[in-house]
Design a protein around this nucleic acid. Structure first.
Lengths: 219, 219
DNA sequence: GTGTTCCAAGCTGTATACAGCATGTGATGC
DNA sequence: GCATCACATGCTGTATACAGCTTGGAACAC
């Protein structure tokens, strides 16, 4: 598994997630493969995986292109996220052991002192993602985790921008979700997750809208 | 888009969905590429897409293998399906136009006379899938559709076996879902979709369990 | 008969070659 | 100045070559 395709796949996936390719930009296979120290063959295999994941798209005869993020697409991804996370929350209430919930509490506690101004955004996003992935992990369902990971990769870039200045709110929301989980209150877990995801969605959508407006309104 | 990779991808996807490869079977690239009239290069690109979709998996140095379906995996996929379909149902209540709902009603009506003994299972599965995809389409969210399509491909084989003799029940359930949609009753839509998916899940899980037991109990 | 070793056949993973098409540039006509 | 067209460059899509590894089986020892 430490072969070339997997390695390239991971690297290009990160590049695509972070929009190191511009939206709609064509990916030059020769240049990228050279930059990654491989030939076009394994690169193209990795690119095809990323097409299947929705991070890139392919046009016959033209090559591979970076996806773009419209406000609508962000909305759609967040709706899918809400569907998965709320359902996972319900399952977690039924399936998570007390030990697992205590681990989640410890994770939240240990990250509490990092939810302060000065923490770099990528770290904030990482902690946020870490919490959510752990919650969904408590549903003991790898397919839910898998689907959610795919979404997070796609929205990571926007979250990274939108997450600034939301420190307290995020941590408070997470604490509320944990509390509802420990109370084994499925309805409350669902509601709080839904509220939290919707809030994030509004921030993210607004972020993309602003980015769009900046594109079309020259300075 | 009518190039070799896309064509091969579609064909191999069907083969994998229908388990024309046996679970855990290694895929012989040379043989398959010859059978499809192409070389190994585009075949491998298609196979990598299918790995990303979860229909196959890859082991470094060993090649590509067909997935297997355990009862647990079926359960997990159906839980994901329930999460997506119920959430889509709620959105559909808010977003579907009256015209769209009438189209759904007409679709259901036109397929009614095919829900009878004698209709081939693949046709039944197709109609069932058609109804569900249309419902989710009413949410006006391509990401939900996309995620669900991925699930349907993975469970199609099991549904094909489990669907026999469930004719009336399926159609009745669909009618109930349509009715709740036309009443714009989100809670009822959610509940009926959840019930319907869970029933299917139980049938599918039982099907796989039986297949498993047949594997290990020699005749 | 059973377990082990070794080998050959065959397969995978990657690089490279090449035909054909897309694209941008410069020349040309108006 | 502007649009158009032709062309050359460069890129994609696919086939093929080949090194290295996996694997199944034969030979062999016990």
């Amino acid at each position: 598994m430490a072969n070339s395709v997997d390695s390239i796949y991971g690297q290009v996936r990160e590049m695509a997630a972070n929009f190191e390719f511009k939206p709609e930009e064509r990916i030059n296979e020769s240049a990228l493969s050279k930059a990654l120290g491989a030939s076009r063959t394994p690169l193209r295999e990795a690119l095809n995986r990323l097409v299947a994941e929705g991070l890139l798209y392919a046009q016959d005869g033209k090559g591979f292109f970076c996806r773009s993020l419209s406000p609508e697409k962000i909305l759609h991804l967040y709706e899918l996220r809400e569907a998965i996370e709320t359902h996972a929350g319900r399952l977690a209430v039924a399936r998570a052991s007390d030990d697992e919930l205590r681990e989640l509490r410890d994770y939240l506690k240990s990250s509490q002192n990092e939810y302060v101004p000065g923490t770099p955004p990528h770290r904030l996003a990482e902690m946020d993602e870490g919490f959510h992935m752990r919650v969904v992990g408590l549903a003991h369902n790898p397919e839910l985790v898998r689907a959610l990971q795919n979404i997070y990769v796609q929205i990571r870039y926007v979250r990274l921008i939108a997450i600034r200045n939301k420190l307290d709110l995020t941590h408070t929301a997470h604490s509320g979700i944990l509390e509802a989980l420990m109370d084994r209150n499925a309805d409350l877990v669902t509601q709080r997750l839904a509220d939290h995801v919707r809030t994030s969605n509004e921030e993210a959508t607004q972020t993309v809208r602003q980015a769009y407006s900046q594109l079309y309104v020259p300075s």
